[in-house]
Design a protein around this nucleic acid. Structure first.
Lengths: 195, 195
DNA sequence: GTCTATAGTCGGATAGAC
DNA sequence: GTCTATCCGACTATAGAC
């Protein structure tokens, strides 16, 4: 694995990703320059273009990786037969997963309009797949008479907006621990579906 | 009311506001240039500075006016003694008011990080005053035993996130009318508080 | 793989004529 | 109040040396 002196791609690539994520989350995609990213990594701006064709791809890759990660993590969760238990699993998973990566979540929600149309369509498709998992749980629970809800798709949007909202105010240093927040939001979710 | 030829301030001022709001909502504050705003209005860049000291003030004024408008409109609503009726009034008002001005709402949520620290603090204070109105309703309903909820402040954040989420998917041309959406979200809100 | 240097464009804001 | 002209800095992306 001999490498030329000055060749650090295995190290540089993830550092560029991390710097871009941190800076995009703090200042917004449009407000961050390639020079700032390079400075955060500790290289000159030209070096970035060995890793990304352009700034847009940097953003797109962050979003796609975040959503792939989200789907993989959800698929790794147990999925109980009982709709109420499945819903509890989803709600707790959603809060836990999102609270653990606030920067990626923030970017995925705030920077959609800075994606090119093709990239936007791909990201929306991935997000939709995630939402569909919750819709499936709700539809099943409604059919089995456990949930007192209206349109499962509308209920999906309402629950996801409510749960994701935790990220706007939750801080690890705050008065509540995350597992307490999880339980409070699960209580609200359960009541919301009439459980 | 005689005016010098070429003097159109009474007309130009609101057109600058409207252009800024539309462009900021579509492309984001950081991605929009003063030249773009001027072009949308039909003037040259220099003319904008007769109406605003800088680009930051344009954003700040949009946010403050939006939140002032929100508070005034809420204060104009009836506030029933009964907490359940008060909550229904709030939920329906929130959806109706936000759905009617999607651009202002979008900017108020997405561009907070582009405010200067002083301006951010002022905007946050205004938003907090609005949230407090809902917290007051929830606290009263909890004390009177009508609501089965945990922390009223957390419940406030959850309900507002859920209701505001309507703006991410609702379109006037969609399959649902706004008053139907209002009722569906009120049903979910009622169940969420254990009613 | 990283560097320096640069092309070519665009940004916010201001000065001064009308 | 609006215009033109301009300052001066910053931007993305590329070229070519090492």
């Amino acid at each position: 694995m001999a490498r030329t002196a000055g060749s650090h791609s295995a190290l540089t690539a993830p550092r560029i990703r991390a710097a871009a994520q941190s800076l995009f989350a703090r200042h917004g995609f449009a407000a961050v320059s390639m020079r700032q990213i390079a400075a955060e990594v500790g290289v000159q701006v030209g070096a970035l273009y060995n890793y990304t064709p352009d700034k847009q791809s940097l953003l797109f890759d962050l979003m796609v990786d975040h959503l792939d990660d989200l789907m993989r993590a959800l698929d790794a969760e147990p999925l109980p037969e009982d709709p109420m238990q499945a819903l509890e699993g989803f709600a707790r998973f959603h809060i836990r997963h999102h609270a653990a990566r606030p920067e990626a979540v923030f970017i995925a929600y705030m920077e959609l309009r800075n994606l090119s149309p093709e990239n936007f369509a791909q990201v929306e498709a991935l997000r939709h797949r995630y939402e569909d998992r919750l819709t499936a749980i709700l539809t099943r629970g409604q059919a089995e008479g456990q949930f007192r809800i209206g349109d499962p798709r509308i209920t999906t949007m309402a629950i996801i907006a409510m749960l994701t909202g935790v990220n706007t105010w939750f801080r690890e240093t705050g008065r509540l621990r995350l597992d307490e927040v999880e339980t409070m939001y699960w209580d609200m979710t359960r009541q919301l579906v009439g459980g």
